[in-house]
Simulated assay, not measured.
Amino acid sequence: MAAAGLLAVVLGVLGGTLPVPLVALGPGPTYNTLDAIDDVPVIQVDGLSTYPTSGHLNMTTIAVSDQLTMFGALGAWASGYRQVVPRTTIYPPEKSDAQVQEDNSAQFAASEANAEVAALSQLSVPTRVVVGELTPNSPAGPSLQVGDELVSVAGRAVDSPVAVAEALLDTVPGQSVAVTYRRAGQEGSAEVVLGASPDRPQGLLGVRPGIEPQEGDITISLGDVGGPSAGLMFALAVVDKLTPGEITGGRFVAGTGTITQDGQVGPIGGIPFKMVAAAEAGAELFLVPADNCAEAASTAPSGLRLARVATLTDAIAALDAVRADQPIASC
């Protein structure tokens, strides 16, 4: 009995303190993209006409619990609303935790940029292409600065971030290309020797292009969140602020989905957890990427209405229909 008791104590200590190579996924916090976080508006518009908004357009997240002990993992599994998966699913062994965080932050920044492009294109607002960010050791770094307007790249006029990428399609690393830019109202030019990219054969400019309205400025700010899945909700918030009327009609709407610069809404992971988080926060309607519809329909919390969206236009149409008490495309 003494030996058995000692063994139980040892197992208890190990089970409560020894980390296991697992993480638990569950519902994370939601954020109203029409509101402010820590007194900073999520969507800040300067120099453009804006209109009052109401209700909620909440982006949703997944909470990842790391450094689980055996007892912690068992508890998460037994809870019924969290999923325990191998840690390598979230943190690939070939990358450090810092690199994973950096990747998530880059994806989130890209979703912000794509959302702005998609919203401004939806509203036909005149725009200009700017240097949104310079990559580490950027070949363009000595010549360009964040905020510079890009006029032409490699002899081609550029009017969108996609056009910047297309201008470099036929280039090779080591090639010198001309870049025309505008800074503080003054036009300048530079010769940039392109670098090499690890994932594409063409030359690397080292610029992450963004887009801004020709007049005014839009800033999307939401710290400590990563990944690309907030794009749809950011784009809707920009559209709501720049158009008369209240797109939600005062309702609590939540959703998720990546977005491309041309307004295509893409699928995401963990949608059951995101719907639970939305329902617990008070959402009445959840915007679901079309490719996630089958999973969403089978796991949706009771009382949460689903709207199937494949594009930003679909999402706006769904909200218009809800305000008018008309049928919507559901999952």
Rank of each mutant, 00 (worst) to 15 (best):
S160F: 06
S152L: 05
T180K: 04
A163Y: 03
S143H: 15
V172D: 13
V177T: 06
V172M: 12
V164F: 10
A157F: 07
S176R: 05
A167Q: 09
Q175C: 05
D159I: 00
E166C: 00
P173V: 05
G147A: 02
V146P: 03
T180Q: 05
V164D: 07
S152W: 01
D148I: 08
P173K: 03
S176D: 07
D170S: 08
S160R: 07
V146S: 05
A178I: 07
E166H: 09
D148A: 12
L169D: 10
A163C: 06
L150W: 00
V179G: 08
D148N: 12
L144I: 09
Q175Y: 03
Y181M: 04
V146N: 04
A154G: 09
P161C: 08
E166M: 10
P161K: 05
S143W: 05
A154H: 11
D148S: 12
S160L: 06
V177H: 04
L144P: 15
V177G: 05
A184S: 14
R183T: 08
V151R: 00
A163H: 04
A157T: 14
V158W: 00
T180R: 08
L169H: 10
Q145R: 12
S160W: 08
V151A: 02
A154I: 05
R183P: 12
R156L: 04
V179Y: 02
P161S: 10
A184D: 15
S143T: 14
D170A: 11
T180M: 00
T171A: 10
V151F: 01
S176F: 00
L169N: 06
R156F: 09
Y181R: 04
S143Q: 15
V162H: 12
A154Y: 03
V158N: 02
A157I: 05
E166L: 13
S152Y: 03
T171N: 11
L168A: 13
A163G: 09
V158E: 01
L169G: 01
E149K: 08
A157W: 03
V146H: 02
G147W: 01
V153P: 10
V162A: 15
S152M: 07
A163T: 01
R182V: 00
V172F: 12
V162L: 14
L150D: 05
L144S: 13
G174T: 05
P161H: 02
A163E: 08
R183D: 07
L150V: 06
A163P: 08
L169W: 08
A167G: 10
V164C: 13
D148L: 03
S176Q: 14
A157Y: 06
D170G: 00
Y181D: 10
G147K: 00
V153Y: 01
P173M: 04
G147C: 03
E149Q: 15
A154T: 06
S176N: 11
V153A: 00
D170E: 13
G174D: 04
S143N: 15
V164M: 04
Q175G: 06
R183N: 08
L150I: 09
A178Q: 14
A165I: 07
A178F: 02
A167I: 10
V151M: 04
D159L: 03
G147F: 02
L168R: 12
V179T: 07
A167D: 07
Q175K: 05
G155N: 03
V158M: 00
A165T: 13
A154M: 01
G147H: 01
V158F: 01
S143P: 10
D170T: 08
Q175D: 13
A167V: 06
L168Q: 13
